[in-house]
């Protein structure tokens, strides 16, 4: 990085810090002067205090227990979606009969937003881990499948031709050319799916749960503790942010040849 871009970076960070400072200050002033009631908008200090209460343990679960409750659902549903969605997408892109058979099913199910599955999942699987896992599965399989499908469909013809010229058979074409070529796009789908899984588990916990961050926020609402609600939202945001960050790090290691943002 040269001098000039360093200055630019510092300048941008400065700008960002100033604007965030202004927002925090405005938030503080609005609540401190009673312009907005604390029931509607908690003061920054109250949120900080609520975050401490949350991390000490809230409604029978420690912070870790809430985190584990949310994450275990995310991981089980997400992994199932990846294991089924990616191979199915690849297969549909590679084999016309599979595409003709499965394509319409995907077309029927895709437009139904994941939250709409929440009641049905409860009806079918109950409110515990299986039900929520199913919802997360439904929400994250779509990006996995669609991206894998498009990734394989759009492998540049020149790469396929080059491989055929070098003597690749059908299996080599799929496993040693098409799949590696599509990997950046597949990874992108997996990242979107992870975000979608996280948003969906929070939504499901808002509807019905006994632990998890969504449950914390909803309990805050029911008990008129807006500071807990805000602390819960921050916990959701931070966890989501960290998951995304970890994913990108792994992606950079696993796919070093791709253009990363």
């Amino acid at each position: 990085m040269n001098r000039r871009t360093t200055y630019l970076r510092v300048g941008q960070l400065g700008f960002g810090a100033v604007s965030l400072g202004v927002i925090l200050f405005a938030w503080w002033q609005v609540t401190a002067n009673g312009i907005v009631s604390e029931f509607l908008l908690p003061a920054p200090a109250a949120v900080f205090e609520a975050a401490q209460r949350l991390s000490a343990g809230y409604l029978g679960s420690s912070l870790t227990a809430h985190l584990v409750a949310s994450l275990s659902v995310v991981l089980s549903g997400y992994i199932a979606a990846v294991l089924i969605g990616v191979p199915l997408g690849i297969l549909m892109a590679w084999s016309r009969p599979v595409d003709i058979a499965m394509g319409p099913l995907v077309a029927i199910l895709r437009p139904i937003p994941p939250p709409a599955w929440i009641p049905l999942a409860i009806l079918w699987f109950g409110i515990d881990l299986p039900g929520k896992t199913f919802i997360v599965f439904v929400s994250s399989i779509t990006p996995c499948l669609i991206n894998a499908y498009v990734a394989i469909k759009e492998v540049p013809a020149n790469l396929i031709n080059a491989a055929r010229m070098l003597g690749a058979g059908n299996a080599s074409l799929l496993f040693r050319v098409a799949i590696p070529a599509g990997l950046p796009m597949i990874a992108n789908g997996l990242r979107i799916a992870l975000g979608s899984a996280w948003a969906t588990v929070v939504a499901a916990e808002l509807v019905v749960a006994t632990a998890g961050f969504g449950f914390v926020i909803m309990s805050g609402y029911r008990n008129i503790e807006s500071d807990i609600m805000a602390a819960g939202m921050i916990a959701v945001a931070v966890t989501g942010f960290i998951m995304n960050l970890l994913f990108r790090e792994v992606e950079k290691r696993v796919i070093p040849w791709a253009e990363h943002e």
Partner: peptide, 13 residues
């Protein structure tokens, strides 16, 4: 029958 393509067509990975 080896071909050198106009657009290199190397495997990026």
């Amino acid at each position: 029958k080896a071909i050198v393509f106009q657009t290199f067509s190397l495997f990026p990975w």
